[in-house]
Design a protein around this nucleic acid. Structure first.
Lengths: 154, 154
DNA sequence: CCATTTAGTTGACGTCGTCAACCAATAGTG
DNA sequence: CACTATTGGTTGACGACGTCAACTAAATGG
């Protein structure tokens, strides 16, 4: 067999990834990432925090939402006080999004919760195993993101 | 440091897992696992296929839905022709769910799609790397499921 | 200067899961 | 054996969420 991975392997792996996606994602952490933030909102907030003067479109793009969906998720984050919005000086059409202090607190709190979960999951493993697992997960994530990127620029 | 994993590590890992969850899960595969099945529906279908005469409650339980939500997702699957429902002979309250032939086709087709994605993601890795990565992902999934289990029986 | 493109918003809408109330069937108890 | 409590499942009202299409306003480009 060319690929070296048979149907059973792929199915088991797919199911494992689905389980990870389900329990770490939408249904993880008691149904929402953190307090009043859903998963998409959390990802949006995190995305905004990584880009200076992030435009609304950018949020939609990185989440795979339409620009309408982007407006909606951003306005929710603004309403909750996690993000501030002002229009750009250079181009009055674009908005500059910025994470507020309140938003940064929320972000680090949410990451702390995820960290706690990871600690519980990893408890019982020795340092070497922990390190290997972590490295593999990050590597897979990188590969997956790369594939997504290639996919959308096809 | 006791845990051996610092804040930065945990944050990077969390974000990686979130990315996996987002792109392999709700937003992966063009927004839905396969044709007219959403992620939750797919997981429900897969769950039902693994249990003989699966009751409705069981579906809700494994997805973390209320029994109401379970009824709803099951009735959707029945409506779409992927699942058949009949009441048990032993206890007239419980329903016996069974995946139909149509459902099985859908299931294997969906897994095939996931498999294709995985093949694309893994393309460029040698067999050893591929195997290691796969093993790590399955291992992490197992640990995560175990933690979820302990969590809910606390 | 006018046509086109681009950033963003909004109303109507469909999907999805929850909550609470409810029905029917079974189990437990005096 | 009746009577109550529990359990499996369903349903109406609801809120959260994202899409679609139409729209506004601000650039951009002959």
């Amino acid at each position: 067999m060319k690929s070296g991975m048979n149907d059973v392997d792929r199915k088991v792996l797919s199911r494992s990834l689905l389980d990870i996606a389900w329990s770490f994602g939408p249904k993880g952490l008691d149904g929402s990432c953190c307090q009043d933030l859903g998963m998409a909102e959390f990802l949006a907030l995190d995305g905004i925090s990584r880009i200076a003067d992030c435009p609304v479109q950018q949020v939609g793009h990185s989440l795979g939402f339409t620009k309408s969906g982007a407006t909606r998720i951003v306005s929710r984050l603004v309403m909750k006080g996690y993000v501030s919005k002002r229009s750009s000086g250079h181009d009055a059409r674009v908005c500059c999004l910025e994470v507020t202090e309140h938003g940064r607190e929320m972000l680090s709190q949410a990451y702390a919760q995820y960290g706690n979960l990871l600690n519980r999951v990893f408890s019982g493993l020795d340092e070497t195993e922990k390190g290997e697992l972590q490295e593999s997960l990050i590597r897979f994530s990188t590969l997956l993101m790369r594939e997504n990127y290639q996919e959308e620029n096809r």
